[in-house]
Nucleic acid binder design. Sequence first.
DNA 1: CGACCTGTTGATTCTGCTCAATCAACGTGG
DNA 2: CCACGTTGATTGAGCAGAATCAACAGGTCG
Lengths: 209, 209
Amino acid sequence: MHIQSTFRAQTVPASNLLAGMQPAAVTLYPADAVIYAEGDAAGPLYVVEFGTVRICRVTADGRRQITGFLTAGDAFGFEAGAEHDSYAESVDGAGVRVLRATGGQEPTGAVLHMALKSLARTQHQLMLLGCKSANVRIAAFLFDLSERQGDDRPVHLAMQRNDIADYLGMTFETVSRALRFLKDERIIRLKTIADIEILDRGALESLCE
Amino acid sequence: MHIQSTFRAQTVPASNLLAGMQPAAVTLYPADAVIYAEGDAAGPLYVVEFGTVRICRVTADGRRQITGFLTAGDAFGFEAGAEHDSYAESVDGAGVRVLRATGGQEPTGAVLHMALKSLARTQHQLMLLGCKSANVRIAAFLFDLSERQGDDRPVHLAMQRNDIADYLGMTFETVSRALRFLKDERIIRLKTIADIEILDRGALESLCE
DNA sequence: CGACCTGTTGATTCTGCTCAATCAACGTGG
DNA sequence: CCACGTTGATTGAGCAGAATCAACAGGTCG
């Protein structure tokens, strides 16, 4: 495959990233383990094999913003500067493969594509934080999770309320209340504390739009 | 210059982008002119030569989120998919150069670098929207503008209150009140409606932190 | 069993939005 | 030149949504 006269992204399976890179084993990070810290030298790319990873940043006053949750197939570790200004942690026990480019070669289009996917996701999140109410943010979050997890089985929340709150720019109490709102509206059902069944997908989607 | 065993960004002047690309003239877009619309086919990259460009997205309920303001040297038009899901407009009369990659070639590391810069900026904005109050957002916005414009002459606001509001996820009334707050605190002074003198840079910075 | 952690719920406070009035700057046409 | 309309900015009053503070429930683990 070659890129024809455009910077548009091309669909490349993540495995193609491995071309021209040193193979690496999958590392298992237990829950809350740090994958890289803020200030660490940037360089390698990471690919999630299983589990969930969160990318975080903290402000001077101690507040945390989670800029992304990553699951199987997602890449992370991109950095514009020489060192990470975010940090990455395992949420629930995650398997991560490290990719180091072999010396003296240009990054491939596949890397660019994954960076652009990150950008698109971050912009989507920006819309949520800029324009939407708490209930709508939660609805959109669940909808997104549901789409990522694919099938129509209950959505599994690998992260806890606290994480969701820091991802969506609100408090965990508000997360709780928003879930309750969706429950009262008969849009979702909490099978367990971490497994949510979507009863009315249409209503959920129309909330997000 | 070559990239050694890393995906870390390298510092490449934007002009290097031109290597391997068709030269193109600068197009002048008058204020509020559309550079590309939502749904347009993605492909070419754009570089701002002078003036200011805004990247926007609208929600179903008509709210607008500005995901970025771009000034001289900034590139935009990256897209993960086949078509733009944002649209770009000139803010104040902007000169824009279009870059089309020549056929059958991989994007260079410079393109990746610019995409990563976009990503970093978007993540920074995410911090603002997720963690900061209205006053702090405005302070950070002014501080950012001031750094981008370089010298210590008054900061020029190319965009109007409405745009700032949609960029920072608030209403234009709140923008007005936040500016008034900074004025009352003797941190800034409004030389004109669009030119702001920073009286106390330390206070401004410590507000953002 | 008690300690602890996570999550839920309630009461209160406060930030920022909505609605609305006012003002200044500007352009147009009589 | 002035009356008028328009547009952007500022300011005020009242309100709504989310944060904060606090109490409590349920589960897990020592």
